[in-house]
């Protein structure tokens, strides 16, 4: 019996964001936008969804006079990502 893939992670942009945040200590909004090659509006919506689920922590501050949004993965996010990858492995091995 296959475990269901986490629908929150099983989406292109959210999965890309989580894969990126798994490897870095933290990342600024502009860096994530640049690496994932998406629009600011779309990224903002997806970050809100991940943050609401407790998968990422979003910190808003200022760098000089410019607003700065920094994201980092939470323990819950790490667990969700690991579970997602393990389920993905099951799908691939049993194909």
């Amino acid at each position: 019996m296959f475990k269901e893939l986490d629908p929150l992670l099983h989406a292109q942009l959210r999965l890309a964001v989580m894969s990126l945040l798994m490897q870095v200590t933290s990342a600024e909004f502009t860096d994530i936008k640049e690496k994932t090659n998406c629009t600011a509006g779309n990224l903002s919506v997806q970050l809100d969804k991940l943050s609401a689920a407790g998968y990422i922590a979003v910190e808003k501050s200022f760098k000089g006079k410019k607003p700065l949004t920094t994201c980092s993965i939470t323990k819950k996010g790490i667990k969700a990502f690991e579970d997602y990858v393990n389920t993905l492995k099951q799908y691939i091995h049993n194909r």
Partner: peptide, 26 residues
């Protein structure tokens, strides 16, 4: 990256994870 939440295949999921790992490993 596509703006919608369209369903991914396992192959596409793996490709996204690999791509993001490669982007930061340099």
């Amino acid at each position: 990256m596509k703006p919608d939440d369209e369903a991914l295949t396992t192959k596409q999921s793996l490709a996204i994870i690999t791509e993001m790992i490669n982007l930061t490993k340099g």
